[in-house]
């Protein structure tokens, strides 16, 4: 459907080896503007390794990651973020001893245009920027209805809201591509349904592309436009959700032969 468009993210023969272990090989994916792509596979298939390569945590052994025509290989994680890729983590990683709003404000690194001198002397510029930051953060928090908890410690939030806060923090980085690593893990069906709504709302509002790792098949089949399946580091199938559900290789990978 979007063949004429240029992909937001493209990987070419991406691969990484740890010692003799080929964790991921020949990983090719294209994600277009506004698309939601699912990445699934059995445990240990290499999904999170792919995320770590995309975000600069691991340096790929071969192949390249291209974001809007810019090669991301060899960039540090924070540089990748400023190029426009943000992520969440499989096990929630919040800034636990900071307030909810500070979690979000800490991630807004692009718009801060004041330096040490402004901070020391509390110049009008400092107040102006800080005020804008607070407004922007509150605005983002309201997406997940967290604005009422802005002054609480992040560690004191219930599990579901911690997940939401992590996504909010990722949104605060002003990214074009969002990588979600098992956002529904540990959620009950109601919470998952709510999350699904929120993911759709985010896409509509920000027009971003999303790459999603998930084990919850109902979630994946419901919202992903395309799905790519990996097993033992190799892509075994990719296509529309209906095709994937019927693919014998995928069924074999999940259920055994």
């Amino acid at each position: 459907m979007t063949e004429s468009k240029k992909p937001v993210l493209e990987t070419r023969n991406l691969g990484i080896t740890f010692g003799g272990l080929k964790a991921v090989q020949d990983f090719n994916i294209q994600i277009f503007e506004g698309e939601l792509v699912g990445l699934i596979g059995p445990n240990g298939a290499g999904k999170t390794t792919v995320f770590n390569m995309l975000t600069g945590v691991y340096l790929p052994t071969v192949g390249s990651v291209i974001l809007n025509g810019e090669v991301l290989n060899g960039k540090k994680p924070h540089q990748v973020v400023s190029s426009g890729v943000a992520r969440t983590f499989q096990n929630i990683r919040l800034f636990k001893q900071m307030s909810v709003i500070d979690n979000v404000k800490a991630a807004i690194t692009k718009d801060i245009k004041y330096g040490m001198v402004d901070a020391m002397f509390r110049t009008p510029k400092f107040w102006k920027v800080e005020h804008e930051l607070t407004e922007k953060a509150m605005d983002l928090l309201s997406i997940f209805k967290l604005e009422g908890k802005a002054d609480q410690l992040a560690a004191n939030l219930p599990y579901g809201q911690q997940r939401k806060l992590e996504i909010t923090r990722a949104l605060a980085t002003d990214m074009r591509l969002l990588l979600l690593d098992e956002p529904a893990a540990g959620m009950n069906p109601t919470e998952t349904a709510e999350l699904l709504e929120c993911i759709n709302a985010i896409r509509d509002r920000f027009g971003i592309s999303i790459l999603l790792i998930e084990h919850d098949m109902s979630l994946v089949m419901n919202i992903c436009e395309r799905i790519q399946v990996i097993d033992y580091g190799l892509t075994i199938a990719s296509g529309l959700p209906e095709e994937i559900a019927k693919d014998p290789k995928v069924i074999a990978a999940y259920l055994g032969e």
Binding site: T55, V57, K76, P77, H78, V81, S82, A86, R87, F89, R93, L94, F95, K96, Q97, M98, D102, N103, A106, A107, T109, K110, R169, A170, A172, T173
Partner: peptide
Amino acid sequence: KAIRDDEIAASASG
């Protein structure tokens, strides 16, 4: 403080 609480998450937040 973000670095203190979680360095990996801090670098993943830019």
